[in-house]
């Protein structure tokens, strides 16, 4: 089946010389959730902005393939892209405050999201907005529509963003940390709503999150990013059952679980920081923090298969965890 979104060898660099995204590839199928995870600063948001063609001035993007259904996004003019954005191709941004305009009411911003793309009256658009606010668990939607962003709590703003992205029934939704400001009961409701839309309308979801609980419960496929590259890609079951890249293994080890972690011990974390990746960088981006680094890692990290549809970027053989344990 043809994917809704197909990305091959996507690269982004900034004027400062930073190589933020270094050749990532991924695909999202109809009705599927593809999760993108990875350490802060590894390039998740920049990748999604590159797909939407919303990168900051001075940033350059290139790709071998960047396709939405049959449309080659690399060939679209900005006007054509603007028509797709917020319509069939929607995005929820990581920082709700930067994408809500403080000077307009919630209602006028939500209605605009629909009237920009459809011939529909403002009153009808407001009805649709109220209906979606209810679906994301906001009561008294009529009152909320008349409020300004600063009058809402963090979680209410985040839910407004989610409802706004759904105004035009998108086919692909890119959601960048959509539930970080929500409590777990509301989070569960939002995630169930997204799953319903996937079942009913075939919504394809590219979900960026650092919550591995969400990944486990939502994803069919997972791509783990580190320093601008996808270092491991697998089905959700395979990734949790057999994490193979040393970074993925470290990541899974630092998940705190209520009722199961030891309170007196410090929480697990991977020591060290992500390196700055300039134009001349080569070798494995994780080597400064990797317990298995060898001299060859400063030169290259090969793409290997742990199993069919399970790839990782590292010199170690697929069975190294067992070998290390033995």
């Amino acid at each position: 089946m043809k994917p809704v979104l197909e990305v091959a060898n996507l690269r982004v660099s900034f004027a400062s010389g930073t190589r933020a995204v270094r050749g990532i590839s991924l695909a999202v199928q109809r009705g599927e959730t593809h999760c993108l995870v990875g350490e802060s600063g590894c390039g998740k948001s920049v990748s999604s902005l590159a797909i939407m063609n919303l990168l900051a001035r001075g940033a350059t993007r290139s790709a071998d393939i960047l396709r939405f259904h049959d449309t080659d996004l690399l060939k679209l003019t900005e006007r054509q892209m603007a028509q797709l954005r917020g319509d069939k191709l929607a995005m929820i941004f990581q920082e709700p405050m930067t994408s809500l305009n403080p000077a307009y009411t919630i209602g006028s911003q939500m209605a605009e999201a629909l009237t920009r793309h459809r011939r529909i009256s403002r009153a009808k658009a407001l009805d649709r907005a109220a209906e979606l606010l209810e679906r994301v668990g906001i009561t008294a939607p009529g009152m909320r529509l008349a409020q300004y962003p600063h009058q809402l709590s963090g979680g209410l703003r985040q839910r407004v963003m989610i409802a706004m992205a759904l105004m035009c029934d998108p086919e692909l939704l890119i959601a960048d940390e959509p539930t970080t400001a929500l409590d777990v009961t509301v989070q569960a409701q939002i995630l169930r709503l997204l799953q319903t839309l996937q079942r009913e309308l075939g919504l394809a979801l590219l979900l960026i999150t650092h919550d591995l609980g969400i990944v486990a419960r939502m994803a069919q496929r997972v791509s783990v990013m580190y320093a601008g590259e996808v270092v491991e890609s697998a089905s959700a079951e395979a990734l949790f059952a057999r994490p193979t890249h040393p970074y993925t293994r470290g990541l899974l080890e630092c998940i705190p679980i209520p009722g199961a972690s030891r309170r007196d011990a410090p929480l697990g974390s991977i020591p060290g920081v992500v390196p700055r990746i300039g134009p001349d960088f080569k070798g494995c981006g994780f080597r400064d923090r990797c317990a298995h680094a060898a001299p060859i890692c400063a030169e290259m990290a090969p793409l290997q298969h742990a199993a069919p549809n399970h790839d990782y970027l590292c010199r170690l053989p697929p069975d190294w965890p067992e070998a290390a344990a033995a």
Binding site: Q187, A188, L191, R192, L212, V215, A216, F240
Partner: peptide, 29 residues
């Protein structure tokens, strides 16, 4: 309900529904 809504990293368990329903509270009411 809150504790039962925590998503542990166990693939395949899905998103729990803890039966709080959809009648969300309104702090003005």
């Amino acid at each position: 309900a809150l504790l039962a809504s925590v998503l542990t990293p166990e693939p395949g368990l899905g998103i729990p529904d803890v039966g709080l329903g959809e009648s969300y509270p309104d702090p003005a009411n």
